[in-house]
Amino acid sequence: MAERRFDPTRLPGFATVAVAVFVLLYLPIATLVAYSFNGGDSVAVWGGFSLDWYGRAWANETVKAAALRSVVIAACASALATTLATLAAVGVVRNRRMKGRAVVYMAINQPLMVPEIVTAVALLIFFASVRQFTGYQGLGYLIAAHAAFCVPFAYLPISARLEGMDATLEAAAADLYATPRQAFRHVTLPLLTPGIIAGAMLAFVISLDDVVITEFVKSAGQDTLPTYMLAQMRRGVSPEVNAISTMLLMVTVVLLTAFFIINKQTNRGKQ
C-alpha cells in the first residue's frame, strides 16, 4: 500500500490553531466595523446603533479633501506604475537571452525587499533637494513615490499573464505583416489586458493605504486619508476614524474581489 501523502490538516490541534488564526485576523476588524456604528462617542463602550459617525465623516471637509487626495494619488500612481510594469514585463519576459535578467528582476522588486522606512527617509532627503532646486510643491512627489513602490505589485500579475501567453501568437502577427509595434498593439496588449487590470487594481489598493512613505514625503496640507487618520489618533480616538476605516475597507474588499474574479477568468481562458 502506498504511504499517505503528508497532510497538515491531520496534525493534532490543526483545527484549534486555524480557528485561533482566523479569530486573531478578523476579530479586530470586525470590532472596528461594529464600533463604527456606535451611537456613543467611545471606541470601547457600546452606546446603541447609529450611522452618526458616517454622517460626520461625510460632512467633514478635511476628510473629504484627504479622501479625494488619496484617490487622485492612487489613480495617478497606479496608472504610472502599471505602464512601467507592463513595459518592464514585456522587456524581461520576451527577452530570454537578455544579460542581467536576474539583476533587472531584483531592481523591479526592490521596493518589496528594502525596508519601507529606509525608502521613506531616502525619498524625504532626495525630494527636499529637488524641491529646493525646482521650487515645485505639488502632489507630484507623492505620486512619484507611490508609483515607485507600486511597480512590483503591478508587475507580478502582468508578467505571470505574459509568461502564460503563447509566443507563437506574436510570431503569427509578424508573419501576417504586423510591424513589432502593431503586433504589440493588436495582439500582445489585448491579450495582456486582464493582467494589466489586475495589476492596476493591486497597485491602486497598495497606494491607497500607504502611511510610512506618505508621512515622510508629504508637505503641509497634503494629508491623505491614512495620514489624516493617523493624525486624528494622536488626538484621541473617535468612532469617526472607525467609520472612515470601514469605508476604506469596503473599497479595498471590492477591488480585491474584482481582482480575484478577473484572475480566475484569466486562468479559465488559458485552459
Binding site: 503563447d166 501568437l169 510570431a171 503569427a172 502577427a173 501576417l176 510591424t179 503586433a183 489585448p190 481562458g269
Partner: peptide, 30 residues
C-alpha cells in the same frame, strides 16, 4: 512582416481575442 510569405502554424496560433473573420482579415488589416 516584410516577406510575402505566410505560415500555417502547427498549433494554428489563431488569435483568441478575435473572431474567425477578424483572424482571417488580420494580415489585410496590417
Amino acid at each position: 512582416n516584410r516577406r510575402p510569405i505566410n505560415t500555417v502554424f502547427q498549433s494554428y496560433a489563431l488569435f483568441p481575442h478575435l473572431s474567425v473573420a477578424q483572424n482571417v482579415g488580420f494580415g489585410l488589416k496590417m
